[in-house]
């Protein structure tokens, strides 16, 4: 998947990328099971072609894009982002894709659209995890429009220079590097523009533990563990020191103004 290094400020961390085996072997993708190894084992069943994304809600004209449309929507860039999971571990991943704002421009949302929802595939035939009632299916995530339009918000089609492996959310997913990983919806089939804050999967499942915003924040602990530090996977095995977690996962300079004046403890 040919791509140019991104020139966007903050889009290429100099930190060492996490080994490919870990990036593609340790995933939360509950549609395939709750163990981290389930997606790598089972996501290969997902039918990736043909793939279409339905764009609707508060838009001038609903439309459906197929894989080729999406692939050609904007020039592909390589971006190296930190990924911080709400569970307290992190990775560094070289993604391939383009800013989500290109898709939003194409969708032409109405002025009344204040949020955007992402719906992941929910296919009972290929996704054994859907039998479990851990979450409501399909998996829905969402962003405020200004968050979605931020140039760092990535629509990823690949990683490590190749097409996204199924377990990482093929064929396309969102990556919001300053938020906990669960905000970055995988295997998207529908993008819907709405005027009310979307009911998102984890927020509905456990509202006191997972907020709608879910910005990475070392000062706002999860009810059952601190978020002050994180374990960077693939570095030093058992004795790897924990790193200090940074506000907005280290992207405060780029995205801090989105939350100016907001009480981040209340809007966790």
């Amino acid at each position: 998947l040919p791509a140019q290094p991104s020139a966007l400020p903050g889009a290429r961390t100099p930190e060492a990328p996490t080994p490919y085996e870990l990036v593609t072997g340790y995933n939360n993708f509950y549609e395939f099971g709750t163990d981290k190894e389930d997606p790598a084992r089972l996501a290969g069943r997902m039918k990736l072609r043909p793939w279409t994304v339905q764009i609707d809600g508060l838009v001038a004209k609903p439309l459906t894009l197929d894989w080729d449309d999406l692939r050609r929507l904007a020039p592909l860039e390589e971006r190296i982002y930190r990924l911080r999971c709400v569970e307290g571990w992190s990775m560094v991943i070289p993604w391939v894709g383009y800013s989500l704002q290109h898709l939003i421009e194409r969708a032409q949302p109405l002025g009344s659209a204040r949020y955007v929802e992402f719906h992941s595939l929910a296919d009972r035939d290929t996704m054994p995890g859907l039998r479990s009632s851990v979450l409501l299916w399909p998996y829905v995530e969402g962003l405020r429009m200004d968050e979605a339009r931020h140039p760092l918000t990535l629509l990823a089609l690949g990683l490590y220079g190749e097409l996204l492996p199924p377990q990482n959310g093929a064929p396309l997913r969102v990556v919001v590097p300053w938020k906990y990983g669960f905000k970055s919806a995988k295997s998207i089939v529908r993008v819907r523009f709405v005027d009310k804050q979307p009911a998102t999967a984890w927020n509905v499942a456990a509202p006191h533990e997972y907020g709608f915003y879910a910005n990475v924040n070392p000062d706002v602990p999860h009810p059952r563990w601190s978020q002050a530090t994180e374990r960077r996977l693939g570095q030093g095995g058992l004795w790897a020191p924990r790193l200090k977690t940074q506000l907005f996962n280290g992207y405060a300079e780029q995205v801090g103004q989105l939350y100016a004046g907001m009480d981040l403890r209340r809007w966790y």
Partner: peptide, 15 residues
């Protein structure tokens, strides 16, 4: 397994 770094991606948590 933990000392041989064979406990998966997150050996500390697994241990």
């Amino acid at each position: 397994l933990a000392l041989a770094d064979r406990l998966g991606a997150n050996p500390a948590e697994a241990l």
